[in-house]
């Protein structure tokens, strides 16, 4: 899925720490650690949401447990260091769970009044998979982070 810009060779990763202490990649080069797009359904979702814009890792952190014992309740924390001003803000964050029955799990549409991207929720996961958090700014930039979650108990039936 090189056309989607998800798996091209990338440069070395460096960048400042986010509020949660995780590494944020500000440079935004495609990263070899980015997950492959697993199937047509996820490819369609990504194309519908972001067209042919590159989906680069950076400016976003997706915090999830590496192991989720109960797939019915998996905590999610999404944070971004991008500004929330009238001129430039994060207008949406999409949460995509590759191997869930309905992969496009949630969309959070935001405005500058939110002040900062710091969203927490709890989701269901069917099985071990990559989870994608992808944001879109009001100026059309697309930034992503990924988390691989091992699911012990199927939470989707």
């Amino acid at each position: 899925m090189r056309a989607l810009g998800l798996s091209a060779a990338g440069l070395a990763v460096s960048g400042p720490l986010s509020a949660s202490g995780r590494l944020l990649v500000v440079g935004g080069t495609p990263d070899p650690r980015d997950p492959e797009v697993p199937n047509e359904e996820v490819a369609r979702i990504l194309t519908r949401l972001f067209g042919d814009r590159p989906i680069r890792r950076g400016h976003l952190s997706l915090d999830m447990p590496a192991v989720a014992e109960d797939g019915r309740i998996v905590p999610v924390i999404i944070e971004s260091d991008l500004p929330m001003t009238a001129e430039r803000y994060v207008k949406a964050v999409h949460l995509i769970v590759d191997y869930n029955p309905d992969p496009h799990l949630a969309a959070y549409h935001l405005t500058p009044a939110i002040g900062q991207v710091a969203i927490q929720s709890r989701i269901k996961m069917k099985r071990t998979t990559w989870v994608r958090a992808i944001l879109e700014t009001s100026t059309g930039e697309v930034w992503a982070d990924y988390a691989h979650v091992n699911v012990s108990l199927n939470g989707c039936g």
Binding site: D102, A107, H109, A113, S121, R122, K124
Partner: peptide, 29 residues
């Protein structure tokens, strides 16, 4: 909605856990 302004909208599916929680920030202006 905060005052007269819609400040956020969330689209969910059944993939959000039972008794859904959400937390987010707001600039209290």
């Amino acid at each position: 909605t905060y005052g007269d302004e819609q400040v956020a909208r969330f689209e969910w599916t059944s993939g959000v856990s039972k008794d859904p929680i959400v937390s987010f920030t707001l600039r209290a202006d």
